[in-house]
Design a protein around this nucleic acid. Sequence first.
DNA 1: AAGTCTTGTGATAGAATTATGAGATTCAAG
DNA 2: CTTGAATCTCATAATTCTATCACAAGACTT
Lengths: 229, 229
Amino acid sequence: MKDAIAKILLVDDEPDILEIVSYNLKNEGYQVFTAENGKEGVQKAKKKKPDLIILDVMMPVMDGIEACEQIRKIPELDHTIITFLTARGEDYSMIAGFDAGADDYIAKPIKPRVLVSKVKSLLRRNAMPKGDEGNIIKIGDLIIDKDQYKIVFKKEEIILPRKEFELLSLLTSKPGKVFKREEILDVVWGGNEVIVGGRTIDVHIRKLREKLGDDSFKTVKGVGYKYVK
Amino acid sequence: MKDAIAKILLVDDEPDILEIVSYNLKNEGYQVFTAENGKEGVQKAKKKKPDLIILDVMMPVMDGIEACEQIRKIPELDHTIITFLTARGEDYSMIAGFDAGADDYIAKPIKPRVLVSKVKSLLRRNAMPKGDEGNIIKIGDLIIDKDQYKIVFKKEEIILPRKEFELLSLLTSKPGKVFKREEILDVVWGGNEVIVGGRTIDVHIRKLREKLGDDSFKTVKGVGYKYVK
DNA sequence: AAGTCTTGTGATAGAATTATGAGATTCAAG
DNA sequence: CTTGAATCTCATAATTCTATCACAAGACTT
């Protein structure tokens, strides 16, 4: 999913809310569909296959909980995020919502700005899991959290520049494996277009060695590099 | 991992969370056990030998960190994955957790779907090493992984230069078979054009003998060499 | 047992590859 | 527009591999 515009389905029986929320989301560039009750919501969900569904809990005809359960049964919508709208304090409905397969909930009264940022973060989170899961790598006294772009080495948090981080990520993704220079270029330097000089990898390896200790990065002459703990 | 149902132990002092998470995991077909504090958790871990343990950090009687340390001391649970539940932003507890031997952490508030997909990926990660052994040759205390360009000898990882690696690969590809000098030249030295002196193979064999022990490389006079375990 | 052929070994030269220091260039934040 | 970090380049030094040679050591023949 590159930058395809995310589709959002909004289900609520109050026209006011429908309009306000819809306006705000469209403003952010999302493609918004609406439905006025659970039943209609499920139907539109099937047809539009949205990336995110915002469900009001209390609705006539079919409430949000039930709608959510229905939607969760649709295999195509497996990766769709579902979030509820609940009145503040309605804890029970939040729990019931999670139970039905929801991913999050948004408290009423709705604050557009909060809503928008929540939607963004939900969509962002969903975009990840496709390609690479298992986002945390732990080897000896090195911890790498790809999601957060964060590295902890010997209990100290370290900040690495982009390239260095990517290179480290690659090497640690399979400790012990020797990565050929070619492989490294492909992954870290996007390989196809950009042509970087032959010594570039070495220089970056050097940086990593400076920061994380010499011993872990082994050179395999004529082949490439590998990481060992 | 065949389809043996994975066992998950869930440890948290809040009944709500226990219930929600438990429900979601059971729904995915996992066998779920629960405990309400660290102490109880450790006991159940011993008894049930789960594949994955989800530990809340903050708990009465014995907190998650301590529980984790205890569990890590149990040899039978060596391969059990441990993951923490931590409140967002509680960085210190994340680090402490890793320090205690955890494999991952899950941020609160819990999003059931996120949780489930994380659990899946964690269990998958653990199941991998058994299943896919593609180009791996194993003979006695020698393991050769051509893809990864990796050699493990008597449990030690060894780095071999290109030619030596290729020569070893060839010989071990059919243990016991005698490779004629001519054959070796063909495969390892691209054979057709390049002319290498007569003693070159011998010298490389010598190197291998130095590194991997004399006995495995037998000389067959007038013919070539072979590898035996 | 001496002769002949083949392999093992130590030393070393030549090739290839990588490490490093210094500096140019790019890029983004202020 | 500065400024500084990040990234990349390049020339040179340092390493490590490879291959070769000369000779020692075995093994097989006759």
